[in-house]
Design a protein around this nucleic acid. Structure first.
Length: 223
DNA sequence: GTACAGATTGAG
DNA sequence: TCAATCTGTACT
């Protein structure tokens, strides 16, 4: 069984965790079997780091704490999820120690399917616990060539069926969502650039290269 | 009570 | 380029 990432991993600073999460797998168990749902697995290929009070782009800028963003302050490994533009959920995982409002925004996933592996042992080594991987949106199968289902923060939440009920959930304990070690990503394969759509933070903070992604991965959100 | 803008997306 | 869509937050 693939090992679940534990607290120490998430207790690290957001800038470290945002890069370390690349290549990790998000395992999402969906209880309703009726519609062929079982386990969804996505490899993290794009993230952004929000480092807390001093970061003008952070929801916790200046130490702001409200009912909406309180999950950012939880110990690393808790889910901070919120709605933007009235329709899209944004999936973040808090990092750092309890009381430190850092988090990592998950911006894109590569759906992982059995077919994507070159051999069965590699497949089983990584996701032996899961049974069915169904790449679907709205219950229907999609082909592996469908690159547009998880290449954005709003879209991947739709794919993983995440919503407010996950607010504050602890991914080191949850039975419906967690992370595993996935595949190793070499440092030379990691690219970085400015975070997306945070112009409101002003040029200094908007330019910080705190968006990280796997080079040449086709599932990275398009610029 | 009310105004307002947003860590996006897909269509035109 | 722009509308969709909605709620937490701030301000009257």
């Amino acid at each position: 069984m693939a090992k679940r990432l534990k607290r120490p991993f998430f207790a690290k600073p957001a800038l470290w965790a945002a890069q370390a999460m690349l290549g990790k797998y998000i395992i999402r168990k969906i209880g309703n079997r009726k519609k062929g749902q079982g386990t969804l697995i996505g490899k993290i290929v794009e993230t952004e780091a929000y480092i807390g009070p001093e970061d003008k782009a952070s929801h916790a800028f200046g130490g702001k704490k409200t009912p909406r963003n309180r999950a950012e302050y939880l110990a690393g490994g808790h889910i901070y999820i919120y709605l933007v533009y009235g329709m899209y959920w944004q999936f973040n995982i808090s990092t750092g120690k309890e009381g430190s409002p850092e988090c990592v925004l998950i911006r894109a996933l590569e759906p992982v399917a059995k077919d994507a592996y070159t051999n069965m042992s590699e497949y089983q080594a990584n996701i032996s616990e899961s049974k069915i991987i169904r790449l679907n949106s709205r219950g229907s199968k999609i082909s592996l060539n469908s690159l547009k289902l998880t290449n954005g923060p709003g879209k991947l939440c739709r794919w993983l069926k995440l919503n407010k009920s996950f607010y504050g959930e602890d991914v080191t304990r949850s039975k419906r969502i967690w992370l595993t070690h996935g595949v190793k990503v070499k440092k030379s394969q990691i690219a970085s650039g400015p975070r997306i759509n945070i112009d409101y933070a002003g040029p200094i903070w908007a330019k910080k290269p705190w968006r990280f992604y796997i080079k040449d991965n086709p599932y990275v959100s398009k610029r």
